[in-house]
């Protein structure tokens, strides 16, 4: 996000949330909307307290959150690293691009739920298929971003480095990589968002742990209160993760800028 917002804007921010909250209380309090469609704030609070104190299905809430975060980090980390490496190579050498581009382009918009069963067949029901699903979600996004970043490298700087006698590796390391970095970081942020958005699909596989599974399991019994609490937690965590990555991005670009 850009500069901190001027103080005179906070009423607008708080105002929207207040309007939403009032509408929510009014809609549920009046009995106009049954609890199964929209749980009341009190229901939500009770459900939240219950989840925090009692956990969900034999596990504390923190365990579920932890499982989900671990999966996200593992899938995102592996996918972003490998994807970026592959993307750099693809941008650097046209023949590598030609070899891998069809798969990357195929994989990128492919709905993850479609190949869920295949992952179970190939990787079983443990952590492997879940992380692999997230990995496959992150990989093409990171690869495409890195490739485009390399391709955007400044022609004149490249030529200058070459005439100065820099080796291919030196050109890559000192010219191409720094100029591709902003794109790589944008790609990483995008990949994290996509991995996070795929979390539920991953945890549908042989579930019993994780926030995503908790929401699915609660949805089965139309426990809208728990679904809502789950959505709130998962949404706020998503915002926090995104902010964290932006922070890291600023640090890295700041450093790279020098």
């Amino acid at each position: 996000m850009a500069a901190p917002e001027p103080p005179h804007l906070w009423p607008w921010r708080v105002g929207t949330i207040a309007v939403l909250a009032v509408a929510w209380v009014a809609a549920t309090g009046s009995g106009l909307v049954p609890a199964v469609f929209l749980p009341s704030p009190a229901d939500l609070w009770d459900s939240g307290v219950d989840l925090v104190t009692e956990g969900y299905k034999d596990r504390p809430l923190l365990d579920h959150i932890g499982f989900s975060l671990l999966r996200v980090f593992a899938g995102f980390g592996a996918g972003a690293l490998l994807g970026t490496a592959l993307g750099l190579l693809m941008g650097w050498r046209g023949w590598i691009d030609a070899l891998f581009a069809p798969f990357i382009e195929f994989l990128r918009p492919l709905p993850q739920l479609a190949y869920l069963l295949l992952l179970i067949i190939w990787l079983g029901i443990g952590e492997a298929p879940k992380i692999c699903l997230l990995f496959l979600a992150a990989l093409p996004v990171a690869a495409v971003a890195a490739r485009d970043g390399v391709r955007r490298a400044d022609l004149t700087r490249l030529a200058a480095a070459r005439t100065l006698g820099a080796s291919e590796w030196q050109v890559f390391r000192h010219v191409v990589l720094p100029s591709a970095l902003p794109d790589i970081l944008i790609g990483a942020r995008l990949a994290l968002g996509i991995v996070y958005g795929t979390l539920i699909a991953a945890e549908i596989i042989a579930g019993s742990t994780g926030l995503g599974w908790m929401i699915v399991d609660a949805g089965r019994f139309l426990r809208s209160d728990r679904v809502f609490v789950g959505v709130l937690i998962i949404g706020l965590m998503g915002v926090a993760l995104d902010r964290l990555l932006v922070l890291a991005e600023h640090r890295i670009v700041h450093w790279a800028g020098r």
Partner: peptide, 23 residues
């Protein structure tokens, strides 16, 4: 459920997991 690991799988996934020897 601490003694026996009960896993949430649909019918199709059960067949797949079974064929791999996972369950």
């Amino acid at each position: 459920q601490k003694d026996v690991t009960v896993i949430d799988l649909r019918g199709d996934a059960i067949v797949a997991a079974w064929s791999r020897g996972d369950i």
